[in-house]
Design a protein around this nucleic acid. Structure first.
Lengths: 227, 227
DNA sequence: ACAAAAGTGTTTTGAGTACACCCATGA
DNA sequence: TCATGGGTGTACTCAAAACACTTTTGT
């Protein structure tokens, strides 16, 4: 009789001020008590995997995410969980952290965003899972317009630029980047807004998802390179 | 107490004479008796997932594959297996079918290659898994040199051309294709060989994996487009 | 007037694409 | 000598890359 448990874990990234953040929770009980780990937990018998991640995320961090991408299933290390054989199906999610209110104490847990270059050490094999998620994020940014999930609904172009600079780790030409993105035709120009602080006011833009889907249907293929 | 079983399934493709084949087995017992299905089965408690697929593949089809890529985990459909809740971690494998001898009766099973456009109907949700595998294959061929796993160790350029034509479903310029591939510098020219049948003798080539890895380390990025 | 950030156009370069003829063999 | 399949070079085209100055605001 097989005795393997199935868990789901969520790698959720947020972006703010040139920094990528990872959503973590503090475990209060169990073998990893007082460790930081990724949100997640065991799947229920009658529960689709994708519902399980969303539920755990909601219960543990108060974060509601309608869409998450399946990332990878971790099940080669027999002892990744000290309590017994557990395989983990990991999902990748992206949010603008400003849109979310972390409930710092649901289910007797602490939830927090950490800058990815200042993470606490994570329990289980969750550092591995995080690495995989980061790798996937860095790959996807080249061929899917995922950046918009990490920005506010209405954003300045320079914010988008900073996001891409942060994720790819490369500097690139501002003019060429803008030209390229605008040429896709799925951004709506919302006109000029004053910004806080110095400098000339800038235009805000909005991602038009319908337009993007329409383009996809016509055979459009999103692609960005950062030489 | 959680009651979910964990299985692995293998989507294994072969290529021969302008045709892609899928490796299937015939189930003799259980709810899918007499149906064709993908090779696979339940994972053992102390067995890494990747070992489980390789084992099932060996036991059921006599195919030995050293490397398989994790494809996707199917666990959203609660009733994908009529016997109860089972999630399946699917893997993708590629082989030159000429190199393998199918054992037509190990474990009281029948194993066979089917052309992908003449598949029998598959049990469980295995058609879905196959579709996902095919989609992944078609995507990967653009950014990883996987074609060589499907060809003999030493191959003629025109065979490679046919393989790419088959997988992408597009015609493309012979000269540009050859120029592009050779420009990568990871093929060794083995000189001229007589071919069976008509026509001018052709050169055989071999994929130099070490050279490819060296290039990767230098930041090389494999990419092929088929306009 | 100066500092800060945003907006914009032109030229250069290189990779992708299109395209057609000659060569070596078997029948 | 003909049919079959293999091998090769050049010109064009278009998108990516390089590149610098002007505009609007706050101080």
């Amino acid at each position: 009789m097989q005795d393997i448990k199935v868990a789901v874990d969520a790698v959720v990234f947020g972006y703010k001020e040139e920094t990528l953040f990872l959503l973590c929770i503090k475990q209060k009980f169990g073998p990893m008590a007082d460790s930081w780990v990724l949100p997640g937990g065991l799947v229920q018998d009658d529960e689709p995997l994708k519902d399980a991640v969303k539920r755990e995320l909601r219960e543990e961090t108060n974060v509601e995410l309608e869409y998450m991408d399946q990332l990878y299933t971790f099940g080669d290390d027999i002892k990744r969980d000290p309590r017994g054989r557990v395989i983990a199906v990991a999902y990748l999610g992206l949010v603008d952290p400003k849109r979310l209110e972390l409930k710092a104490d649901t289910d007797a847990l602490d939830a927090q965003w950490f800058p990815i270059d200042a993470l606490p050490s994570l329990g289980y094999d969750h550092e591995l899972i995080f690495e995989k998620g980061l790798e996937r994020l860095r790959a996807k940014i080249h061929y899917e317009p995922i950046g918009f999930d990490l920005l506010e609904e209405e954003f300045f172009f320079s914010e988008m630029e900073g996001l891409y600079r942060t994720i790819t780790g490369r500097a690139f030409d501002r003019r060429n980047f803008r030209k390229k993105i605008l040429s896709f035709g799925f951004l709506e120009d919302l006109g000029t807004f004053r910004r806080e602080g110095m400098g000339r006011p800038a235009n805000k833009f909005r991602f038009i998802e319908d337009k993007y889907n329409e383009l996809l249907a016509e055979g459009f293929h999103f692609e960005l390179k950062f030489a």
